[in-house]
Design a binder for these strands. Structure first.
Lengths: 324, 324
DNA sequence: CTGAAAGCGCTAACAG
DNA sequence: CTGTTAGCGCTTTCAG
């Protein structure tokens, strides 16, 4: 910047003003500075600028698994909101590893990010609350974190699951299997609660032997479904806790052409190409990401109202059977 | 850091040494410094550290569309490689907009990233070559950029398409439709070349009226396929240039149960759940991302051998018909 | 093995 | 409207 100042015959500060678009500079000087910048190929160093000014124009996005289409949509939405405001996004995937998450969060704060959007991985989020107390703006995404007094943007997991199961019950199903991932994942326990609420509301008892949990991937879900198909009074319907489980269940049901109605949480690519009609709990993942990003940017720009939790609504959609 | 130094009764420099794990410090002092750091809740400022030292521990990933599962897998792979080396990743999506890409690239270099992995969007990549000349390490991903003298990691698009079409020809198909996105996208023109090479090798003339291009989404692909099904001598097979096109073609073929063999580039989620068997050109997207990241890190750490292009191999896989 | 001083590239504060 | 001076938080000399 000194070189530019010398070349343009002005002071360092004037160059700084021109770069920052300060209005109160003689147009003729602005011209000269711009010419020098172009000639010398000057490029400002944002890090140095931020060091003195204390401004933060980067936010961090810490997701559980960047390869999951759900987080991908969110990454895109956050990125889109940020770029509009000339803010860059530092992204990292924790792979559901709490230790890695802590390292990433710490690393990001050391880079003085303006704020963090976090999908919390572990049950113990004291570290996150500590960061928040240190002054890092935090928005929780998809999952709340007990003990962390921050904004959260969540899906209406309970309502979505309740609606889905209520519909099956209304259609006359009485033996409904419920396949879930680990209940230590907040979304899963919420979806289970929602499903159970529907059972209770219909006065139907939950059949424990039809409820299977801890399915992390399609394969175990397929295996569990295969077993359920073989039992004496097999279920006539299944509610799947997420898209991986839905896919696994279909891997068991479709080849056997088993007479089981399929409903699941989350939409997935090409679900509409299935030969059999299914029902899915869909939601606007883009809205989820956007909302979180906007909330964070609001906090960064000074909003200090009490933390609030926003719920993204769900709706049941038809997929498969080439419906369009 | 000054506070820590005062608290521990040592000099600033000693604190710096302890933080950076310099061996030659009296263990007793190290102890005292660590205690003070913990008591004061000191957190080092990475940006300030990098300012003086000139070190770069961030890389940038500029993709065309973060919501596409392809780029997502890559994002995950890059992120995984980076985190192993304590490097953070700045990510942004250009949405195939060359102007936005230029802004993002510039913005990232101003943040003094150590290097950039770029999926180039426009045909004109002079700006990228300029950045490279300024000293930013650049690795091109998925697409080469004419005039940019940098490493590239690409899929063997030509070979994959050639193999796919050759297989159809070997199976006796003579009327093979070819559905593609815009040929201005490098991967598409390469895939077209590969397909045409297979036709030439088999001595079969390409039938122009069966070749349709510029399909950006499933919908136009479906419409095109519907038209092709209606013509007098309809194709007996179709080669689709990417997964969106394959999905669109299937939207036309499946409901009509049209007797058309389907082969396409790219795998997609739940492809194995289709009621009809299809063939897909698959490749290791994770490897693609890893390779690019490793190449970039090698460059950053001083590798100055001539730029080289790496090709990721493809292979044909069965999907659908519940094959597993 | 330790520390004082200079300086990374820029902006804030305060004159003029 | 323009310039001077200090200083962001750390690392790099270089001298003890």
């Amino acid at each position: 910047m000194v070189d530019v100042a010398v070349d343009a015959g002005v002071s360092l500060k004037t160059v700084s003003r021109v770069i920052n678009g300060v209005r109160t500079v003689d147009p003729e000087m602005v011209e000269r500075v711009h010419a020098s910048i172009a000639r010398l190929g000057f490029r400002r160093n944002t890090m140095a600028a931020n060091l003195r000014s204390g401004s933060r124009d980067t936010i961090g996005l810490v997701t559980a698994d960047l390869s999951n289409t759900f987080y991908t949509t969110i990454a895109r939405a956050v990125s889109a909101v940020a770029i509009e405001q000339n803010i860059q996004v530092l992204m990292a995937s924790t792979d559901e590893d709490p230790a890695l998450e802590q390292r990433i969060v710490r690393d990001m704060t050391e880079r003085s990010v303006g704020g963090l959007i976090v999908v919390p991985s572990g049950p113990d989020q004291d570290a996150l609350e500590l960061e928040r107390r240190r002054g890092t703006a935090i928005v929780l995404l998809d999952r709340p974190a007990p003990g962390v007094n921050a904004d959260a943007v969540l899906i209406d997991n309970r309502g979505g699951a309740r609606d889905a199961v209520a519909e099956l019950l209304a259609a006359g199903h009485r033996r409904i299997a419920v396949l879930l991932d680990s209940l230590s994942i907040h979304t899963m326990s919420e979806r289970r609660e929602g499903a159970f609420e529907a059972f209770a509301a219909a006065g139907v008892a939950v059949q424990d032997h039809l409820v299977v949990t801890d399915m992390h991937a399609p394969d175990p879900a397929r295996a569990a479904m295969e077993k359920l198909i073989e039992i004496d009074d097999p279920p006539t319907a299944v509610f799947c806790g997420n898209n991986r489980i839905t896919i696994g269940a279909l891997e068991a049901i479709l080849p056997r052409n088993a007479p089981i109605a399929v409903t699941g949480f989350d939409d997935f690519e090409a679900a509409h190409l299935l030969s059999r009609g299914i029902r899915l709990v869909d939601y606007d993942a883009d809205l989820l990401g956007r909302t979180a990003a906007q909330q964070l940017l609001a906090r960064i720009t000074g909003d200090d109202s009490p933390p609030r939790t926003t719920y993204i609504p769900t709706r049941l959609v038809d997929r498969g059977s080439f419906d369009r």
